[in-house]
Simulated scan of single mutants.
Amino acid sequence: MASTDFPAEIRSLRNTFQTIEKVSDVERIRADIEMLSEEAGVPDLWDNPAAAQVVTSKLSHRQSELERLESIGSRIEDLEVLVELAADEGDADSLAEAEKELVSVRKALADLEVVTLLSGEYDSREAVVTIRSGAGGVDAADFAEMLLRMYLRWAEKRGYPTRVMDTSYAEEAGLKSATFEVNAPYAFGTLSVEAGTHRLVRISPFDNQGRRQTSFAAVEVIPLIEQNDSVEIPENEIKVDVFRSSGPGGQSVNTTDSAVRMTHIPTGIVVSMQNEKSQIQNRAAALRVLQSRLLLVRKEEQDAKKKALAGDVKASWGDQMRSYVLNPYQMVKDLRTEHEVGNTSAVLDGEIDDFINAGIRWRAEGRRA
């Protein structure tokens, strides 16, 4: 096996890193940190907890961006020193260590490069994700619950806080639908490529004849609204119904009519919330999600007008974007990017970064085209 050309590899890493630094605008990040630090230091900041949370969240994110960039820059410097020392001393163990670090830094740069592609209008927002079971009966409901776990595990591994806002349980097993927030900067830009129809093929555990079953679930991802978003909804455009929360027995939420179903009459958009303990909390959560959906509808209408003027009437997303095949073979494949993985258990346990990164690159290429 040919030995690694470390000087060439390190030059390649440096060139990629310099491009990322330029696109990321490091000086702008530092200026933002300085400005946000001043805002965070104002004595009466927490008199308005919601506004304070926005400031501290943005500051934390910008600091993390800078630390990540500086960390990779330092790793490239350290790698070059390690290679030079190992070569001077003929240290095979150190060269092997350098080989591993080279692979690791290359992967970190690739992940960082993907982040620079998140430049959409709402990409920097937190996200609200809704999963709905589709065709396939009880298997589809079970699949919806599998997807909910997959995304929650993905967020947990990344250290992203999540909050399940609504769960509607199916009669036999699984979920009719579930809605949750991912409270991390760029969660919307990152997860928006997961929106679409997901397909599961497996031997149904609910079929006593052990037949193979195909089922579907839909994933919707919308940006969470911020205080400065002007999404005013007149009261006469909203219909609110209250009902008793459903779910596994014994929950305190089942004892009162605290669940809320909010319907936006002009568009027909329906939002249900039941996981908070009071009707007031569920109503506030439902309104926030409804505003977020209307915000995205507004953007989609604007984009549609632009596409119509440009003469581009092609749909961006197919009805089925990813297949999870558990039988007769094991494979998860994204039908847009062609990225596929044979370890289905890892994917369903939240190992979906490679799918997300491939999706972000695919979307960026589509925008450039």
Rank of each mutant, 00 (worst) to 15 (best):
F6C: 06
E9N: 09
R11Q: 14
N15H: 02
Q18A: 15
I20N: 08
D25M: 03
D32R: 06
D44H: 09
L45G: 06
A51M: 10
Q53P: 09
T56R: 03
S57T: 12
R68K: 13
R68I: 01
E70W: 02
E70I: 02
D78G: 08
E84M: 13
D88Q: 07
K100S: 15
E101L: 09
V103T: 14
L109K: 08
D111H: 14
T116S: 10
Y122K: 08
V138E: 12
D142W: 10
P161N: 11
Y169Q: 12
A173Y: 10
F180Y: 04
N183Q: 14
A184Y: 14
A184M: 14
L200Y: 03
F206L: 08
Q209G: 03
R211S: 05
E226P: 00
N228S: 11
I233D: 06
P234G: 05
V240W: 01
I269D: 05
Q281H: 04
N282G: 11
A284Q: 12
A286N: 00
Q291N: 03
R293D: 00
R298F: 11
G311R: 05
D312R: 13
K314G: 14
S316Y: 04
R322G: 12
Y329P: 07
R336T: 06
H339M: 14
D353G: 09
I356H: 08
